[in-house]
Nucleic acid binder design. Structure first.
Lengths: 144, 144
DNA sequence: TTTAATGCAAACATTTTGCACCCTG
DNA sequence: CAGGGTGCAAAATGTTTGCATTAAA
């Protein structure tokens, strides 16, 4: 996470932008627990719980900035808003989403990365990123 | 497509709902060209071009209904609205999206289906469906 | 001290909903 | 002809933006 934060600082200074207390807070909210993948409102709520009042507008602005730097990725978990998580490029991972309780679990798989690389090659694409969302029912919900 | 339409009719009558001219039009708009994956507004525009005026509200209502029946799936192509396509369950397919021109191309791969089934088993999930979106730059855009 | 960052409220885009009227079964 | 379907306009959601003020470099 230290390396990513330095990369963020580098991006900002390289673009005439400034590092602020607020940007640091949002950055840390995303990077301190990668498996949380909060949405913008979650970040807002989590910060407020820590007595850090940051407006939703600024949270959106900062998240968009982090996405632009390539440090954060925006994911769609089947709801009507985006979620965010640190970009762990090179490590293929997807999300397993329970259609009943909404729980989101990550999975990792190297085979898929290989298959997708091959598909890109076949179709003549230079690949940038991919997302896999798998929907089903978790063990707990199957029983209930 | 005939089979799917019958399934739609069966769902409606089984739920005390009615088949209408409008529902048939929306259904056909989705099923007549599976690779179009239009959004709600596209469906509206395409119908209007055929002198069939159906309100956006009804299009949304019908698309949601078709998704509920399992006949249509809602996909996220990285824009800020949903797209729709016939559900071709059992046939794993993903979307290859060009980050420059926005072109969407489908791909099919059996290997991925196998890998995902295995992941579901490992984690104790009963899988329902999955979506794969791969982003990159198409051949044409790489040159330009 | 210059220029970017922030908060607020208004604007936007997409999708949903309440209600009066229309149509299917 | 009873109950669901539709269009319209208004509401609801999630996200972005203009502007006056604050703060980083």
């Amino acid at each position: 996470m230290k390396k990513e934060f330095q990369k963020f600082q580098g991006y900002l200074s390289g673009h005439g932008l400034k590092m602020t207390k607020t940007r640091e807070l949002v950055f840390k909210e995303i990077f301190s627990s990668p498996a949380v993948h909060p949405n913008a409102y979650d970040v807002h709520r989590r910060l407020r719980a820590k007595r850090k009042d940051v407006s939703l507008a600024t949270i959106y602005r900062t998240l968009n900035l982090l996405v632009k730097t390539g440090l954060v990725s925006e994911i769609d978990l089947g709801e009507d808003h985006s979620h965010y998580e640190p970009e762990r490029n090179k490590i293929a991972h997807g999300h397993l989403i329970c259609l009943s309780c909404g729980k989101v679990q990550e999975f990792r798989n190297e085979e898929i990365q290989g298959v997708i690389d091959r598909i890109g090659e076949e179709k003549g694409y230079t690949l940038d990123k991919f997302s896999i969302e798998v929907f089903g029912f978790c063990q707990k919900c199957k029983k209930g």
